[in-house]
Amino acid sequence: KTLGVHYEKGLNGFRGVYQTINVCFSREAGNGFELLNRAQDLDEEGLRQAKMTYLPTDFLRKYQVSFK
């Protein structure tokens, strides 16, 4: 039901390279899946903004628990 995408690599000097990688990968590898789960943005603002352009349907809520 869900395909996890952890990373992609492209040459930054080419405009639209990451969008193209994502579209092509989604068409080929994503066939038959309902959702793509993109890796976390590691608090990088540019990456977060780029990922928001894909109009996400939901976000995973993460929590940190500490025991003393």
Rank of each mutant, 00 (worst) to 15 (best):
T57C: 10
R38Y: 15
R48G: 01
C24Q: 09
E44Q: 05
G10Q: 12
F14L: 11
L35F: 13
K62T: 15
L35S: 02
L36H: 02
A39G: 13
Q49Y: 13
D43L: 10
R27M: 11
L11R: 15
V5D: 02
N22H: 09
F14Q: 13
K9L: 11
K62N: 15
Q49S: 03
Y54E: 12
L11N: 14
G32A: 12
L3C: 01
Q40R: 02
V17F: 03
K51H: 07
E8M: 08
Q19G: 12
E45V: 13
Y7E: 15
P56G: 10
L47P: 00
R15D: 15
Q40Y: 07
P56A: 09
R61K: 12
C24W: 02
F14S: 08
H6V: 06
A50M: 09
K1S: 10
E34H: 06
Q19L: 14
G46I: 09
L60G: 06
V17N: 04
E44Y: 07
E8S: 05
F33D: 05
R48T: 06
K62S: 14
M52R: 10
R61H: 11
T20I: 00
N12S: 08
E8Y: 07
K9S: 14
G10V: 07
R38N: 06
Y63I: 03
L55E: 15
K51L: 03
I21C: 08
K51M: 04
M52G: 05
L47Q: 02
G30A: 09
N12G: 15
K51W: 02
D43N: 13
D58V: 07
V17E: 11
G30T: 04
E28L: 12
D43F: 08
G30D: 02
R27N: 15
G32P: 14
G4I: 12
G46H: 02
L60H: 07
L36I: 15
R61E: 14
V5M: 09
R27A: 14
I21N: 08
R61M: 14
R38F: 14
G46V: 08
G10L: 09
L36E: 00
G30I: 02
T57K: 06
N37T: 04
R61T: 13
Y54S: 10
R15A: 09
Q49H: 11
T53W: 01
V5E: 00
D41N: 04
G10C: 14
F25W: 10
G4H: 13
F14T: 10
F25N: 01
T53N: 01
Y7H: 07
L42K: 00
K51P: 00
D58K: 12
Q40P: 01
Q40T: 00
Q19V: 12
V17L: 03
N12H: 07
G46N: 01
T2L: 09
T20V: 02
D41L: 10
H6I: 06
R61G: 14
N31G: 10
C24E: 11
V65Q: 07
L60A: 10
E34A: 12
T2P: 00
L47G: 00
N31S: 12
S66F: 11
T53E: 06
L55T: 04
T20D: 05
N31P: 03
A29K: 14
S66E: 14
